[in-house]
Simulated assay, not measured.
Amino acid sequence: MASEQALTPTNYIQHHLKNLTVQVQDGGFWTLHVDTIVTSVLMGLLIVFAFWLATRKATSGVPGKWQAFVEICLEFVDKQARDTYHGPSKLVTPIAITLFFWILMMNMLKMIPADFIAKPLELVGVHYWKPVPTADVNATLGLSISVFFLMIFFALRSKGLGGFTHEFLTAPFGKWMLPFNLILNIVEWVSKPVSLAMRLFGNMFGGEIVFLLIWVLGGASVFGMLAGGVFGLGWMLFHLLVIPLQAFIFMMLSIVYLSLSEDSH
């Protein structure tokens, strides 16, 4: 079936954009995207292992190359978090580090051509495997919903349940405009995780489609191979900026939202 679908450019692209899914309950609505879950966990474990290697032989003297690189990266994220968040919380920097480096690792899978992953898996009977987790809206929504719950936690910790509820119902128009305040605040709070998820998903999914289109162009003819190589190289160089930028934007907006959730309106 997979080989038949690869005969046409449309089916080829649709094939590579299809997730490997497992339905938890027959006839139910809960479907797990196995490729997204497995790849996300692997990327998380990989970055933890990479950081562990840096700390295993850490020294206060002259650091090794890998230790120095990791320290530079962590100091960069820590500085951005401290400059953006002005509260006393010690959780913000670990949250920022987790979001940035985990998303960065997942985004970097885009640099591997889809067939380099799909073809070996087909040999063992796995015909669908979407390699980039952040090109799956379920993954980006999972990340943004986690940030949403952290926003609620930070707001309750800062203002208490009473203060948070009072502000939610009375700001910004006062207690006599309670229905309008409630609608406005619901829209404001819900739009933040939705925009976080859709921004990251849209950029990664769109980039994945363009990569597949270039790959299809390369197989059309000799001229197509040359054009595909040029366009592919250009698009890959462009994504060397997009991949860390999208991770950075997601991290920074998350920290901004956590800071705003503690502010009084």
Rank of each mutant, 00 (worst) to 15 (best):
N203W: 12
V41D: 02
E208F: 14
N107P: 01
L45S: 04
F154N: 03
A247T: 01
R157W: 00
I209N: 05
I249P: 02
R82P: 02
G207R: 03
V194H: 01
Q23C: 03
K175I: 14
L178I: 02
E262K: 08
D263I: 14
V194S: 06
M204C: 09
L17V: 07
V22Y: 15
T84M: 11
P179C: 06
M151P: 02
E188W: 01
S60T: 12
L200T: 14
F100V: 04
L141D: 02
A50Y: 00
Q67D: 05
Q14F: 07
L156A: 14
G202W: 10
H15L: 12
L260R: 10
W215E: 14
P179M: 08
S264L: 12
L156P: 00
V48K: 11
L241R: 06
V126G: 03
M204D: 09
G160R: 09
D26Q: 13
K18W: 08
I243T: 09
L260I: 04
I37L: 13
I214P: 07
S221K: 06
G206R: 02
M177G: 00
L196Q: 03
Y257D: 10
L245Q: 04
D83H: 06
L109C: 02
N107K: 04
M111S: 09
N185H: 06
M111Q: 11
A118F: 10
P133I: 07
F205Y: 14
A197N: 06
P88Y: 01
T39S: 10
I95K: 01
N185C: 02
M105F: 15
T21A: 04
D115N: 15
W30G: 03
P193H: 05
N138M: 13
Q67A: 13
L121P: 05
W52L: 09
S158V: 12
K119I: 10
G207H: 05
R56I: 08
M43A: 11
L7Y: 07
E262S: 07
H166F: 02
P120V: 07
L99W: 00
W102H: 14
V77K: 01
V22P: 01
L150D: 04
G27K: 08
I243E: 06
W30L: 14
H166G: 00
L245M: 10
L109Q: 05
P113L: 05
A118C: 09
V132L: 09
L32V: 15
F223Q: 13
K159Y: 01
T140A: 08
P244D: 08
S195G: 00
L99A: 08
G163F: 14
F29A: 13
S146K: 00
L17H: 10
N185A: 01
A6Q: 10
N203F: 11
D26R: 15
L53K: 15
L237E: 02
I145D: 01
M111G: 03
E4P: 00
A6F: 08
K110I: 05
G125M: 09
D83T: 11
R82Q: 12
I95V: 15
A58V: 09
K18V: 12
K18R: 14
V22G: 02
G64F: 06
